[in-house]
Amino acid sequence: MELITDKHIKAKLTQMEQPYFISVKNICLSYNNFPVLENISFQIKKNEITTIVGPSGTGKSSLLYAFNRMTDFNPNVQVTGHIYCCNENYLTTKDIATVRSKFGLVFQKPNPFPVSIYKNLDIPLRENSKLSKTARKEKIISCLMSVGLWEEVKDRLNQPAQQLSGGQQQRLCIARCLVLDPELILMDEPTSSLDPISEAKIEELMVKLKDKVTILLVTHKMNQMRKVSDNVIVFWPKNNKTEVLTYGTVDQVLYKKDNNTFVSQYLNS
């Protein structure tokens, strides 16, 4: 039987004190010293879908890239602030490998690698884990099942991933994130290039996946925001910078009394 130590109690208490899974504090992001985001703070709850909405150019996608530390590759982007998860600032930690495996990123356009369906999942898994071949295979099958793709591809795992339809490719990309056991999946307008049927499947999948992972979604589709979100963050431009206009549940955000006409029109579009 496991002994309950002070350490365990302390950890449990800390967990109870922190209802939020990820805490974003004072994020400032600028392109070539031109500020885009300034002092952005919000929290993300575990196993919920938090959606960021707002007009184009307000730095929503850039913020997602900062989560995954993709901004490190662009010397013209400067990011400061804190993204706390498990008492660690993921924005400054040197262990980028852990950041990228914990915060998976799904792009606007499906981007499967030009290899087979199986290898699309096997390559990142091999690179980031020491699992045996059999264990990897089991994991790949379970991830394909999680995204509802297994039945569709089980007979053609060795065929090129580009032969899949757009919606299937995007689900494959989500499965590619899932093989690394992420805590948070960052989705940057994942349905913007898909047809309504594929879009509905991805939305259904998002809701299903939130039992396993937390999702931070960026979207321009208000209908999608209403359908899948637990919490909504509205980014709004003010004096050439972006501020968090509202944060709350879908109803709280949509029916907030002090929303001005532009915001109301945007959110109800």
Binding site: N68, M70, F73, I96, A97, R100, S101, G104, L105, F107, K109, N111, P112, F113, P114, V115, K119, I123, P124, E127, N128, C173, R176, C177, L180
Partner: peptide, 22 residues
């Protein structure tokens, strides 16, 4: 394509894997 490059970066693939496997 830029998407493929970004996809490889986002999954923390090492340069060897990114070039010789993808």
């Amino acid at each position: 394509p830029k998407d493929i490059r970004l996809g490889a970066y986002a999954l923390n693939l090492k340069p060897f894997t990114s070039y010789f496997r993808i």
